[in-house]
Design a protein around this nucleic acid. Structure first.
Lengths: 210, 210
DNA sequence: GAGTTTCTTGGACGATTGTCAAGATTTTTC
DNA sequence: GAAAAATCTTGACAATCGTCCAAGAAACTC
């Protein structure tokens, strides 16, 4: 086989892989919408297909089984949120500004991405029962922890004092706050988002020694 | 109808009601075990019946439908945990003792009641999707919040300084800590419980001003 | 443009689900 | 202890589930 032919085959193969991966992402995206609407327990492959432009059979062409699809969704979800506050961290000039912008960002995504957040909590809880989800969920949780830690440590630096808690504790705190906010928001409490905003601002101040 | 006959009928009726309620509680208890093992999404009525001494048909004699059974389980769960720390609150002589005992209690129940806790998080998350669960879940969540608040406010009193956060925020924080601990504990991290203990002790100190 | 591969469809399958009802069994009533 | 009421078992039902497959449509190769 000539070098040219080999290169050519590689290019083609790569193109096929890309197309395959692209369609997988499309289907995972469509699945995310349905999952976020119905939750893990009530979502079937047929329902996912019906809410997309594909048939239910095609799902098994791109995914080994249901668990494979769900895990792809979980990974896809990661992209939605992990870099959400990086802009804020990079451009903030003062501790106060960072604190305000972060709290406002939390409230905004609680209001706008409600369904996606509840899906995350759903899938994370499923990982407590299904061992096959654990690794991927743990990895995403860790990346969320790092995201929070970037904010907290940058805040501490701008404030001129070291953080008073570890990355794990900081994440656990804001995650707990957010989840409570989500529960209230979804039960019809229209003030839940602004309460979350106030609470986050308050707590961020307490997470650095002073 | 004589007064005696009326009284008699009432007594009988009450006995029947009690028996009915008692068996409902038995069945809900059995259902709790299976639910805690498999999670909401994977638990069927037949599976629940199989793990009990009854047949699957009897479930529909005591419960209108599956949702009715699940809600009875949620309510039953409430009794397990709401008064868990009241003894500690009542007998603690100093802020340090209360803090230590509370943190130790958290770690203990994380280790010993693992499955029941993950069921609670599962059902609470389901309430984000199923409106019919929302009222009961919110009520239990509120009672857990009050439980945490009894501890925090008693700690603040013993420490001689007012709490630095509201009841909602205090609960959100400890709930977030506990959930992270549960995730780690169930993924095989044998140090999760003692880490939770240390984190809870650390944070309790920070939740009062001064 | 024929031949080959890749992609997609829609139906069929066996298993499982929640629900229900008819009948057997037990408990209660008088 | 017979009649009545309650409790419980068993089997059946329609629906839905994940999975698989044969055949058609589309894309690609030479």
């Amino acid at each position: 086989m000539t070098q040219v032919a080999e290169k050519n085959r590689d290019r083609i193969s790569r193109r096929q892989v890309d197309k395959f991966a692209e369609r997988r992402a499309q289907l995972a995206d469509a699945a995310l919408v349905t999952l976020a609407e119905l939750g893990y327990a009530r979502t079937s492959l047929r329902e996912i297909a019906q809410n997309s432009e594909f048939s239910h059979g095609v799902l098994h062409y791109y995914f080994r089984d249901k668990a494979d699809l769900i895990m792809a969704c979980v990974r896809q979800y990661n992209a939605y949120c992990v870099t959400r506050y990086d802009q804020i961290v990079a451009t903030s000039q003062s501790a106060d500004e960072l604190k305000r912008d972060f709290a406002a960002g939390l409230a905004k995504t609680l209001r706008e991405d409600t369904a996606m957040h509840r899906l995350w909590y759903d899938l994370r809880t499923q990982s407590l029962f299904e061992q096959s989800f654990q690794a991927d969920v743990a990895e995403i949780d860790k990346s969320l922890e790092r995201m929070i830690w970037r904010i907290v440590s940058q805040f501490a630096e701008l404030a001129g004092s070291p953080p008073a808690v570890s990355a794990e504790v900081a994440y656990a705190i804001f995650d707990g706050l957010f989840q409570q906010g989500l529960l209230k928001h979804l039960s019809g409490d229209t003030g839940a988002a602004s309460e979350l905003q106030a609470h986050a601002e308050l707590l961020m101040g307490k997470l650095v020694v002073g």
